[in-house]
């Protein structure tokens, strides 16, 4: 008992520096942002307005559109990207595959791209007269050019393509690292029992990687709910507000328009609430036992 208590204290000691730093640099500002969300006004002229910001939020058509768009990205993009990342990591983990280093680097590199290049290149590739349309026309997949940046539907598709392009390799890294932590003897045993590679994937790899799958699912959900770079730099939120996300809207309220930091903070806490809800669901599905 004494030893156990002792170890419990050591555990707290290990975590103490992180707890201290995160409280200081995240929770303290977060608390201030929460207080701010009950105030409203231009720039420095803030006045206490109680729950007005939250009422305003639910009557704000633009905020609702941003919320809808964000959900669309979340539902269609996150599961697809996670499966893709897992698929590539298993492929690239095969020791018999040649040029693994090259393929790994190639798939990872998009996540290091500079935002300037990212935005210019995607706009260029997907412009109405761009290479992507040329290619699709030549293959007769489409009969007339797609207006990627001007059409509400295709602009959303473009954003989803862009996020997938940029973040699949990033998530793949976590799986690749995780795969190395899986005990190899389990695979050996399975092989002896005659399990093929697909069976191995579903009955060994996925259950073993569960903690990592949960990690990427939650962090990707957080990332998507806070999605900013892509709509800001590729579509500018357009056409109309059809690709606008909540984070971009927060940015607009804070910097693009006459700033109202109180309202911006209130919109931010909507993201916090949503993320908490989604994370709890994912923890439950992920089978974390408490």
């Amino acid at each position: 008992m004494g030893l156990k208590l002792n170890r419990s204290i050591i555990g707290w000691f290990f975590a103490s520096l992180s707890i201290l730093l995160i409280s200081m640099f995240y929770f303290y500002p977060m608390l201030q942002a929460l207080i701010l969300s009950f105030k409203s006004g231009m720039g420095a002229n803030l006045e206490f307005t109680g729950l007005d910001n939250y009422v305003r939020l639910f009557n704000d058509p633009v905020a609702m559109i941003a919320l809808r768009n964000t959900f669309i990205y979340l539902i269609f993009q996150v599961p697809f990207m996670i499966l893709l990342a897992m698929f590539f990591s298993v492929l690239l983990n095969n020791p018999n595959l040649k040029f693994r280093g090259f393929f790994r680097t190639a798939i990872f590199l998009p996540s290091v791209i500079s935002l300037v290049a990212y935005s210019v290149i995607f706009k260029y590739l997907f412009s109405t007269e761009g290479i992507v349309n040329d290619f699709l026309l030549k293959l007769s997949i489409i009969s007339e050019p797609i207006e990627w940046l001007m059409d509400p539907f295709w602009a959303k598709v473009l954003i989803i393509i862009a996020i997938t392009w940029r973040w699949t390799g990033y998530n793949m890294i976590f799986y690749l690292a995780g795969l190395q932590n899986v005990d190899k003897s389990i695979y050996e045993a399975a092989k002896i029992d005659g399990a093929n590679s697909i069976q191995q994937f579903f009955y060994i790899t996925i259950p073993m990687l569960k903690p990592i799958i949960l990690f990427t699912a939650i962090t990707s959900t957080i990332g998507t709910l806070q999605l900013f770079d892509e709509p800001m730099n590729i579509t500018g939120g357009g056409p109309g507000n059809e690709t606008l996300t909540i984070s971009q809207y927060i940015y607009n309220i804070s910097f693009e328009y006459t700033p109202d930091f109180g309202y911006a903070a209130a919109v931010s806490f909507i993201i916090v609430i949503l993320t908490v809800v989604f994370s709890i669901i994912q923890f439950k599905i992920g089978g974390e036992k408490d």
Partner: peptide, 17 residues
């Protein structure tokens, strides 16, 4: 005034419609 860019964003949306 103070709202040029906020109004421009509204307009960009309405132009689409």
């Amino acid at each position: 005034g103070m709202h040029t860019y906020a109004i421009m964003d509204i307009f960009t949306g309405e132009l689409q419609n």
